[in-house]
Nucleic acid binder design. Structure first.
Lengths: 131, 131
DNA sequence: TTGACGCATGCTCATATGGGTATATGTTTG
DNA sequence: CAAACATATACCCATATGAGCATGCGTCAA
């Protein structure tokens, strides 16, 4: 077997620097292939190919605009990456506790949006334990 | 040019599912190659090769113990991955604001630990804007 | 010392990559 | 309709992967 296809999942798609650059560029809003070509200083075919990969894993959405195609980011697939990597956060960040608590808190009370400010105050009890 | 080497960086190293499994297994503590071989149900040579890649990008450290080699996780290289992906968090998490603020806060005032609780209360103003 | 054990390497093979270049398809303008 | 423009695809190629299998090498036991 060879290496897994880049279109297998977000992990593989994002392993390519150029594709990360594309996403970063699109983070500012919709962009056409030509814009990306210029921003990345990469040939148009290459950009189109990278976009294809990103599209196949759902990291970008497209929209037709005349003879152009506007691409837009869709971070959803990155959630899996984040969730995997965030578990290792404590391995490099001593002050990890607080972030973890908040993340955890948000995850289970995402709906109580307006109640959030109240929730965060619970961190007062944790902030005491220096790393 | 072909795909970047898996040993190029954490992004590429971690794109392989098996290597993520290895890290997950090691998250519990040091393990010998044989232990991993059993846990992953993978052949010993493959495990050794994956460990080699993880080692080359600094994701694991080794220690000799008689005729065994104990591997241990080192999350440092994952920090870059986390920092890149975390910026996209708002794209899937509506309650992103708070987390971002806290992360930002921790990053620049990591020392003022006990002051954190006070800082997080500033998010009260943001919580209003549901996208 | 000999042999079993634990792990790392070497080698083969099928596969897909990413860039380069050429070209097909669809759209707007004259 | 023809020409210019914006993208997507098709090929070609050098490269490295990851699994399978064999083997080399250091360590511990009898």
């Amino acid at each position: 077997m060879a290496r897994a296809a880049t279109t297998t999942d977000a992990f593989n798609a994002v392993a390519e620097p150029r594709r990360r650059e594309i996403l970063d560029a699109l983070a500012g809003g919709e962009l056409a292939v030509g814009d990306l070509t210029e921003l990345l200083g990469l040939a148009q075919p290459q950009v189109s190919k990278h976009l294809r990969v990103l599209r196949e894993v759902g990291l970008v959405d497209v929209r037709d605009d005349g003879r152009r195609r506007l691409y837009r980011v869709n971070g959803a697939p990155l959630r899996a990456v984040h969730e995997w990597v965030v578990r290792y956060e404590r391995l490099w960040n001593e002050r990890f506790d607080l972030v973890d608590d908040v993340l955890d808190e948000l995850t289970r009370t995402a709906s109580e949006a307006t109640e959030a400010s109240k929730a965060t105050t619970t961190t007062e009890e944790e902030t005491g334990r220096g790393d």
